[in-house]
Amino acid sequence: MSRSPTLRDAALAEMAAITARHPQHFRALPPTRVKAGALALAAIMLLTIGLWRLDFAPSRLIDGVGQLIHFLGLMLPPAPGTWSRTLLIFQGLAETLAIAFLGTLGAAIIAFPLGFLAARNTSISRVVHFLSRRVLDGVRGIDSLIWALIWVSVVGLGPFAGVLAILTSDIGTFGKLFSEAIEAADRKPVEGVTASGGGKLHGIRFGVLPAVLPVMAGHVLYMLESNTRSSTIIGIVGAGGIGLMLSEMIRMLEWDVVSFIVLLILAAVGVIDVISGRLRAALAGRR
């Protein structure tokens, strides 16, 4: 059977001519590759310097593994100890979940309008846009643990300080995430609303909001998961929840209680993970 000439034959027959016509595609070391190589080299050097400066010692890590195995042995089997302590642990867990829930929800409500002010396309003016951006950056720059320490000294020990800590640090995070979702929203629906005689608020309400609301809800659900974890930590500095109990048990070397609490937290986070995953899938499907 006679085959037609293939593209390969044709290309190879005039390979020299093609190379001559497009020399930039046949360079041994294209500029982009040189740039990428230099960047990779710089990153490796930075990493090496960092490891050296921070006394990175693999031998210490290997020695520590023995200690870790010893503790793991003490952790088995996980046990809460007395009944009264079990009750306290579950109360602490409930408090932690409540802190995470209230903190996340409060932060989302406050960050909702801020997100629109901080988004370029929906802000009132460039000054407002700039200022709200910087305020959000500042709030976000401080970790929730630091906020917990600040709020504990303002309103005293307890879960109230914990809620405030989660709320303040998350306003920054939500404000940033929301404003980015708004900026990434398609402009065409807004143009459609504007062309029909709608004002700026109409454009936001009917053009932007329907597109970004599911995205925002997804962010809130994700942060709820993440805050369940971080609100255990802020408990350690006295802002309520199961963290206080956890740090006490570590200090008292009651390793079986520690492992019980850790497993409980894992289970709680897992349950919230599953629920919010379902909710997010449902939200995405409804679009």
Partner: peptide, 22 residues
């Protein structure tokens, strides 16, 4: 390989868009 690049450019040349390659 240079061969593969030549084949790709030859295909683009056929449709008058080789200058858009980068």
């Amino acid at each position: 390989s240079a061969e593969d690049r030549a084949i790709a450019l030859s295909a683009l040349e056929r449709f008058d868009i080789a200058e858009l390659a980068p």
